[in-house]
Design a protein around this nucleic acid. Structure first.
Length: 231
DNA sequence: TCATTAAGTATGC
DNA sequence: GCATACTTAATGA
């Protein structure tokens, strides 16, 4: 296996306080893998054998409700840790992770987690920080789901993706990974029909531009207004 | 206001 | 040319 370059980890929050030698040490224990779009990296409830860091691509994190349908809980962007069940004191994964686009991730056996948190300054605190942020975001989405009207929920879901992964183009902010209407309905607890209608209406109003699996937010400000601010 | 049904068009391997 | 993505209208809770 080819040696991984140290520049992969320098600058990433969990590793930013480490020196070259420490990063080298971490990389030498890591396994790098590529995942095609749509590939499941691990399943909810499965034995957590490894924890991961996303180097490139985007992931959907999906949970199955008691009813049986899947809802998209959050997305993972490059540079983020995921599958960190050990940080939650769990030995199974709390959710399923699926590659939303072609992705590359590093992983380590969970047996190394105690070493990492003990040996590397900043690693533990940074991990718990992202974990806390995620929990907060999930809770926010959940209360939003329960209280807000559909149009607001879809608006904030699109905004979240644009903020998290958006790349600037001439026309606006483009969501960097493929998203279907179905995906958005899975994030917002509505139907793909409603999402389709909303996106069509917004396109007519010049707020977004969308083609298949592809969304550009052309007027973020008005989408923000739709997402919650009242007129 | 929104889900559901249903019936259509567009797109891409 | 077939499966998948998306659109639109109609109906009714």
């Amino acid at each position: 296996m080819a040696k991984l370059d140290e520049s992969l980890l320098t600058g990433l929050p969990p590793f930013s306080m480490l020196n070259r030698a420490q990063i080298r040490e971490i990389l030498d224990h890591a396994v790098s893998r590529r995942y095609d779009e749509g590939t499941t990296i691990f399943h909810e409830g499965a034995e957590a054998e490894r924890f991961f860091l996303l180097l490139d691509g985007y992931l959907r994190v999906v949970r199955t409700t008691p009813g049986g349908d899947q809802i998209i809980v959050l997305h993972i962007s490059p540079g983020q840790l995921f599958g960190i069940a050990p940080a939650l004191q769990r030995d199974t994964y709390p959710a399923t992770s699926i590659a939303a686009a072609e992705s590359i991730a590093l992983s380590w056996p969970v047996s190394l987690w105690p070493d990492f948190t003990a040996k590397y300054p900043g690693f533990a605190t940074e991990s718990y920080k992202t974990l806390g942020q995620r929990l907060g975001q999930i809770q926010e989405t959940l209360t939003e789901m329960a209280t807000q009207a559909v149009e607001k929920r879809v608006a904030s879901a699109v905004l979240r993706m644009a903020n998290q992964s958006g790349i600037k183009t001439e026309n606006g902010i483009e969501i960097a990974f493929p998203v279907t209407r179905q995906n958005i309905s899975d994030m917002t607890g509505t139907t793909l029909h409603t999402v389709s209608r909303l996106l069509s209406a917004w396109q007519k109003d010049g707020i977004v531009e969308s083609t298949r699996k592809h969304i550009v937010v052309t007027d973020p400000h008005r989408l923000v207004i739709l997402s919650g601010a009242q007129d």
